[in-house]
Design a protein around this nucleic acid. Structure first.
Length: 560
RNA sequence: GCGCCCAUAGCUCAGCUGGAUAGAGCGUCGGACUACGAAUCCGAAGGUCGAAGGUUCGAAUCCUUCUGGGCGUGCCA
């Protein structure tokens, strides 16, 4: 029965065996646990093992080996998958697969091709992934870059898992910072016009502010000099700067392979009194209360350390207030799940947001927050001095221009989101064995090269039914198939845990298995039938590498 | 002070949500190109999983305490 992974097939066997045991009365029926089968590390333990008997033993209060005996006894290996199976250790059942059981797994790869690895896990579910969401007060820097790739790849993984995915960037363009941006440009503008200005330290320091001021000066001359702040000058400077900066952000992201379905402006939320309407509603429902001129949200009732302000004493709503409205807006757009990818420095904000969505009547599960730890930018092992305050930082655009899209994306995906990441510019740039991205791409290019050579020698690219797969008998070949077979399960696992790094590690594994095989064995030899079988095998490996790299947003080159 | 995260080989990190003798890359040492691409491969050395208790058939993984680092603890975002 092709179309199922080896694990799935074994689980089926075990389920049937359990049923038989219950029918025969050998085992008394209890809650049937979800059966787990895992691949083993040790060859002497076979290819796969299950701890089923040990799990059952605790609920049935019997000897695990006795249960294992019964289950093993009643396994009906109708498809002839197994060489043998045996009981070992405290009650594991170890499965030893037959050589020719492996090759049947490749049928699915060949049939599905680009679709191999995809699943219907998220069928009919709409999920929104919000990420990056940096203020348009300056270009994106290296820290944003990591969040950008992680958000993007999470979205890719979910798409591959059948979710309907929407990528969104929340433009935080309504707050104080924006006003500050406008002022900064305005001061620089006056400065450029020859005025002596004591440039305030709380203003943005970067060179890009001066560039923007210069642009305005060039286009409009000094006509804003004579106007007073009340006449909307600052507003003009703010809007101009934000617009230009946002365009730059979009350009940088695009070069990085990150494209959003929508850029959502915070201002949108204030239209038609939106934020206020929501606040009044929440007040009516008792989640928001007034204390003097200040309005508080009782986040403490939801497990936060203390209540949080939603409207300041000066009458202005906080960022948090707008964010609740934003999340309400998301749910009104019928997303079943909302995923927020945040920098880890915002972790204190998490309980607040959960409180927010629960007040909106949503379950906790309707929101998932992925925290991305900070990036240490290095060059040749030495930290690169960066100060947002002083306006000295390496931008995302700089990184992509210097090390390239593929290498930088891959490097950002090599660690769990939750742990700190060292990003070394020189290392990421190196086209050597120190740089893992090439290792994987090289495997793909090599496979492409083999296929090219095969075509030159008159082979056709074989399909599943064209080859005698019983000729594949080497342990390395079974090993490769085993790894290929794991791929769909890997994607599913990454989708459930929202962990892109798993795929990075997987591509490395599969590439390693392939390289090793390649060095030891010839794919194309004098033996035509064997060559066809092996060609088919490496073709399948190539498909999987390509599919995995596509999810990572890294190219799979045919030559390099 | 309180809260969250991290601690695994010399370095950088995985460890599939509790499984059997803890893995990989880099670095070090020693090997492999007249053969489909050497950006590759093979071998060796390298560990008290920060520490101490606890939970159970079984713990790097779960619970408690402690140590050391990062972040947060705004009517900033």
């Amino acid at each position: 029965m092709p179309g199922k992974s080896m694990k799935a097939r074994l689980i089926k066997l075990l389920e049937k065996s359990l049923e038989t045991c219950f029918e025969k009365g050998i085992l008394t029926e209890k809650d049937i646990p979800s059966i787990e089968v895992e691949s083993t590390k040790e060859n002497s333990h076979g290819d796969y093992a299950t701890n089923l008997a040990m799990i059952l033993a605790s609920s049935m209060k019997t000897n695990p080996r006795k249960i294992a005996d019964a289950v093993a006894e009643n396994i009906q290996d109708e498809d002839n998958l197994l060489e043998k199976w045996e009981i070992a250790g405290p009650g594991f059942i170890n499965f030893f697969m037959r050589g020719n059981a492996w090759v049947t797994l490749l049928k699915e790869v060949d049939e599905k091709k680009d679709r191999y690895g995809k699943s219907g896990l998220g069928k009919d579910k709409r999920v929104q992934v919000e990420f990056v969401s940096a203020n348009p007060t300056g270009p994106l820097h290296i820290g944003h870059a990591r969040g950008a790739v992680i958000g993007d790849v999470i979205a890719n993984i979910l798409e591959a898992s059948g979710f309907s995915v929407f990528r969104e960037y929340y433009i935080n363009d309504a707050g104080n910072q924006m006003n500050n941006l406008g002022k900064s440009v305005f001061y620089r503008y006056r400065e450029l016009s020859g005025e002596k200005i004591d440039y305030p330290s709380e203003c943005y320091q970067g060179q890009y502010i001066i560039d923007l001021a210069g642009e305005i000066l060039e286009k409009s001359g000094d006509k804003y000099l004579t106007k007073e702040e009340e006449e909307g000058v600052i507003e003009f400077f703010t809007d101009y700067a934000a617009d230009r900066i946002l365009k730059g952000i979009k350009t940088d992201l695009e070069a990085f392979g990150v494209v959003f379905d929508r850029y959502f402006s915070e201002k949108e939320l204030y239209k038609n009194d939106g934020v206020w309407k929501l606040l009044r509603e929440l007040q009516k429902e008792g989640f928001v209360y007034k204390d003097g001129d200040t309005m508080w949200f009782n986040t403490k009732d939801f497990g936060d350390e203390k209540d949080r302000v939603v409207v300041r004493a000066n009458g202005e709503p906080t960022y948090f207030a707008a964010d609740i409205a934003y999340h309400q807006n998301k749910y009104l757009r019928n997303f079943d799940t909302v995923i927020d990818v945040w920098g880890a420095d915002h972790h204190g904000y998490v309980p607040r947001m959960y409180a927010g969505i629960q007040a909106l009547g949503k379950k906790r599960e309707a929101l998932e927050v992925v925290l991305v730890q900070l990036v240490n930018l290095l060059r040749d092992g030495k930290p690169v001095a960066m100060s947002t305050r002083a306006g000295e930082f390496v931008t995302l655009g700089d990184v992509v221009a210097e090390v390239g899209k593929d290498a930088s994306r891959y490097n950002f995906l090599m660690r769990r989101s939750n742990s700190h990441l060292d990003f070394d510019l020189e290392l990421a740039k190196k086209q050597s064995n120190e740089n893992p991205v090439y290792y994987v791409q090289y495997a793909h290019a090599r496979i492409s090269s083999i296929i090219r050579t095969a075509l030159e020698r008159g082979y056709e690219i074989p399909a599943y039914d064209d080859v005698d797969l019983s000729l594949l008998v080497l342990p390395e070949e079974f090993n490769m198939i085993k790894s290929i077979d794991k791929f769909p399960e890997l994607i599913e696992g990454s989708a459930k845990t929202l962990e892109p790094h798993r795929i990075t590690f997987y591509t490395n594994d599969l590439a390693s298995i392939f390289h090793s095989y390649y060095n030891k064995n010839r794919v194309l030899s004098d033996d035509v039938e064997l060559s066809k079988a092996r060609l088919f095998l490496v073709k399948c490996a190539g498909i999987v590498l390509r599919n995995a790299l596509r999810i990572l947003g890294v190219s799979a080159p045919e030559r390099m």
